[in-house]
């Protein structure tokens, strides 16, 4: 335990990107998962309040043209967008790591089949396919289904990276020594390979959260996601639909845009900070 704390304090020392990134992420997690819990009503419901009220003490961020409280809607949107990001990143990273490990460790025909498949997924342009799938769903799906769809395009790249890493780890002498100590393949994978991949997987995870939140927002603006659910994307969609910008209802659109930008910046800072820490540690 003490070791871990030492590592963590080491990690944040002199790493401003990591520090700022983490503080911002923590803030968003608090808004999304703690504050949203105290919502006095369901902010997704329409016409609970008069429309287009500017910010006041009663409605901190005013109300929307749909008669929703923007602040509470925003907390729900942040929660759902983060959820999408986390689900996509979890699926993408776990599947990627497993597939990459299998390819890298078994080699031969298995490797070639898997690599052809991942190449196909990497080469396929994601946007047209996502638009097609979104059009089929027509804005009426659940957060889970939406996450699964985005995840389809987020496992192949990690799989490739993990394969490359396990190929080079497999050549490390400590793996050879483990073999000559009678350790089996499974034991070697779990004790020698996976621990060395985990830090990378953490960086990949944050990156994928970022990509997934961005993808959801993009699809939503095109009207292709779960529009009756509060997400950062649907917030933008409805505000754009009602021409909030031209009608001067800035309190509806600005919080959404600002949140997306800030979430993406914080995740970006965190993941680059983490990678630079990890590469510095490797050099030592």
């Amino acid at each position: 335990m003490h070791e871990i704390l030492h590592h963590l304090s080491d990690m944040f020392k002199e790493n401003i990107r990591l520090k700022i990134g983490s503080i911002m992420i923590i803030a968003f997690v608090l808004i999304g998962f703690v504050i949203s819990f105290f919502a006095p009503f369901n902010p997704e419901k329409w016409n609970l309040f008069p429309r287009d009220l500017p910010p006041s003490l009663k409605h901190i961020l005013g109300t929307s043209s749909l008669g929703q409280d923007v602040f509470w809607f925003l907390t729900f949107a942040i929660r759902n967008s983060l959820l999408i990001g986390i689900i996509v990143a979890s699926i993408g990273t776990v599947v990627g790591v497993i597939v990459g490990l299998i390819a890298g460790f078994y080699g031969g025909l298995v490797d070639r089949i898997i690599m052809t498949l991942t190449d196909a997924f990497i080469a396929t342009p994601a946007l047209p396919v996502l638009i097609l799938l979104g059009a089929i769903i027509k804005g009426k799906s659940t957060i889970i289904i939406l996450s699964l769809i985005i995840a389809i395009f987020n496992w192949a790249w990690p799989a490739r990276q993990v394969r490359a890493m396990s190929l080079s780890l497999r050549e490390m002498n400590f793996v050879n020594v483990a073999k000559f100590s009678g350790m089996g393949t499974m034991e070697i994978v779990f004790s020698d390979i996976i621990p060395h991949i985990l830090p990378w997987a953490a960086a990949n995870f944050t990156n994928t959260v970022l990509v997934a939140i961005g993808t959801e927002a993009g699809l939503a603006i095109l009207g292709l996601t779960t529009l009756e659910k509060a997400t950062l994307g649907s917030l933008l969609y409805w505000s754009l639909q009602h021409q909030a910008m031209f009608r001067g209802i800035w309190w509806w659109i600005a919080p959404g845009v600002l949140s997306i930008v800030l979430i993406i910046v914080s995740l970006f800072l965190f993941s680059t900070g983490l990678s630079s820490y990890l590469s510095a540690r490797r050099l030592r």
Binding site: F174, V177, S181
Partner: peptide
């Protein structure tokens, strides 16, 4: 320094050699 995994205890390798081999 690359004959042992830095995250594993070193005695593990020796005991495993006796137990498994």
């Amino acid at each position: 320094y690359d004959s042992f995994n830095p995250m594993k205890k070193v005695d593990n390798y020796l005991l495993k050699t006796a137990l498994k081999i």
